[in-house]
Design a protein around this nucleic acid. Structure first.
Length: 302
DNA sequence: TGCCAGGCTTCAC
DNA sequence: GTGAAGCATGGC
């Protein structure tokens, strides 16, 4: 077990932030079985063929791995980065973002596997977060390798070679819907080498965006999510339906109306994102995007 | 029953 | 190049 004192690190917030779909809360029994302190709840994360249980207890977080494996998870959770600095940089006049950043102050931008992010965010189209979890688990159980870690067994997310064994009919049977043909094709592209996740890792953000959008089923939003959550290009600012609602409700009114009216309707969201986030938080707008995404449902329920 | 969800492709204009 | 239609499925 590894114990670290950590600020701006909240497992519950990370699990619910919509960037990872294989992070689940574990019971008090399981926490005890893992030998972790029982304080503020614990979560299990599956990343590739690895699995970790982490629990907060006061100001510290206990990780179920040994010191030799900890560097992997330290990188996964982006622990060396100071998210307090990101939060401190929020425009003091932007009250909505101030509240959002305070509300999600324990969120981290995870460093996840690019291939897993490509497939996961192709699946995410027109789906709720719980529905995405179901599809990711289905693909893993059907095509991924079984792994046993102590008392816990799970299936790793399938590699592109494993997933390429799926026929289009099988993917349809797993209820991927119209996304089935996208997943089917992306597996062929990965096997042929047309899509090379290793090459993708070497590209800059603009290069990665252009590269990803060449593939069937990947548009701007999915490409941005892959960049943000799979390549750690934290300058990426994915605009989905939720972010669109926030921008149009909270930020359009801060614009000079004549200025906004000059922009075609279809481009107004991008205009607002550019004006209030990409320019202001150049190089790390994606962190702010996560605060907005996480806070929005709570803001609306109040 | 109808609407909506971490959208994308296709097609008409 | 722009905008609308069509696409699968599940939850509310």
């Amino acid at each position: 077990m590894v114990i670290r004192e950590l600020r701006n690190f909240d497992l519950r917030q990370i699990a619910r932030s919509g960037q990872c779909f294989r992070m689940t809360e574990v019971s008090a029994e399981e926490i005890q079985m893992a030998g972790l302190p029982f304080g503020g709840g614990a979560y299990r994360v599956i990343s590739g063929s690895r699995c970790l249980t982490a629990a907060r207890c006061g100001g510290t977080v206990a990780f179920s791995c040994g010191e030799e494996e900890f560097p992997y998870w330290e990188n996964y959770f982006d622990l060396p980065a100071d998210y307090g600095e990101f939060i401190a940089s929020v425009d003091e006049d932007d009250h909505f973002l101030q509240k959002a950043a305070a509300f999600g102050s324990g969120i981290r931008i995870l460093r996840q596997d690019p291939w897993e992010m490509i497939v996961t965010f192709i699946l995410s189209q027109q789906k709720t977060v719980p529905a995405i979890r179901v599809l990711v688990e289905r693909l893993s159980e059907r095509y991924g390798s079984p792994v046993t870690a102590g008392d816990f067994s799970f299936y790793a997310f399938p590699t592109y070679r494993q997933l390429s064994r799926a026929t289009l009919d099988e993917l349809l049977e797993l209820k991927l819907g119209y996304r089935a043909k996208y997943v089917f094709q992306i597996c062929r592209d990965a096997c042929s080498g047309a899509l090379d996740p290793e090459k993708l890792k070497t590209l800059s953000y603009p290069e990665a965006m252009a590269y990803l959008q060449r593939f069937y089923g990947i548009g701007k939003k999915v490409a941005d999510c892959v960049c943000l959550f799979g390549l750690h290009h934290i300058e990426a600012f994915p605009v989905d339906t939720r972010i669109r609602q926030v921008l149009m409700r909270e930020y359009a009114i801060r614009c000079d109306k004549a200025e906004l009216d000059k922009v075609p309707k279809s481009g107004q969201c991008d205009f607002l994102a550019e004006k209030f986030f990409l320019t202001k938080y150049e190089g790390y707008a994606g962190v702010m995007q996560q605060y907005l995404f996480y806070y929005e449902p709570y803001a609306m329920s109040r």
